[in-house]
């Protein structure tokens, strides 16, 4: 199943997918055990002439322990899963490494309005670069995002970065990522936002440092999809 996940280009990618796999194998094992037991019973204990079912009401603690002990073991595994995954969550949503650059992403029906800092590296100055649905970032740099919305709730989703955050009107939510591989990757909107929801998306362009500088200066870059403006 896990091979269905798209290529991971986030700095925390390997770790993230490992959490995924870990949960997958633990619950997968439980699942198989339970189903095997179920199907074993179904086939092994069919009605047969002359055989009466056992009388096991499970009233005593001793009998109940057959159920309670596995349940406690499950609890143990669950806690172990949570223990392992929470640091990942903290690293993504709580602790932010210092920014190399900050970009503002504003969702509105039905586009992503993106404001990049210009050559001065600061937002809110003359040379800010504004784009629609196209996010340009240098590779291997920590990018902070100010995530905002103008009208309704949208959700900024970049599958290859394992990044998702709802954007909510009236709030500015901080997010971050560091892309480690150049290329173009899909951006989508994951929260139903109206009739145009199915068309709301864009591309993230992870550029090498030179390409990024070129883009800042407004020069042609030799990557294929750069002129694609809509989706």
């Amino acid at each position: 199943m896990l091979q269905w996940l798209p290529e991971n280009i986030a700095s925390y990618g390997a770790q993230y997918d490992a959490v995924f796999a870990n949960i997958y194998y633990i619950v997968g094992a439980w699942f198989l055990a339970a189903e095997l037991f179920l199907f074993f019973c179904i086939f092994a204990f069919g009605r047969r002439k002359g055989r009466k079912a056992g009388y096991l009401p499970g009233h005593s603690w001793k009998a109940m322990s057959w159920v309670l002990i596995p349940a406690v073991v499950i609890l143990g595994f669950d806690l172990a899963i949570d223990h392992q995954q929470v640091p990942m969550w903290r690293a993504i949503k709580e602790k932010q490494p210092p920014a190399d650059q900050t970009v503002t992403v504003k969702g509105k029906q039905f586009v992503w309005d993106i404001t990049h800092p210009g050559a001065d590296g600061k937002l809110g100055t003359e040379d800010d670069k504004q784009t629609m649905n196209q996010l340009y970032v240098p590779v291997d740099k920590v990018i902070h995002l100010n995530l905002e919305a103008e009208d309704v709730i949208h959700s900024f989703f970049i599958p290859n970065l394992r990044f998702k955050q709802d954007v909510v009107p009236g709030r500015s939510i901080k997010g971050w990522f560091k892309a480690v591989k150049t290329g173009q990757y899909k951006i989508s909107c994951a929260e139903l936002c109206g009739v145009g929801h199915g068309n709301m998306g864009g591309w993230i362009h992870v550029l090498s440092e030179q390409d990024y500088q070129k883009w800042l200066r407004g020069e042609e870059i030799t990557t294929s999809r750069l002129d694609k403006d809509s989706l």
């Binding site: 179920l38 019973c41 204990f45 069919g46 056992g54 499970g58 309670l68």
Partner: peptide, 27 residues
């Protein structure tokens, strides 16, 4: 997340009880 994971326990108990009911049954 923690409370959600906890709630799987009572349901595990119920499901296991059903499985135990099938054990040595006469289906």
């Amino acid at each position: 997340s923690l409370t959600t994971i906890m709630i799987s326990v009572p349901f595990a108990v119920i499901i296991f009880s059903f499985l135990a009911t099938l054990w040595r049954a006469s289906i």
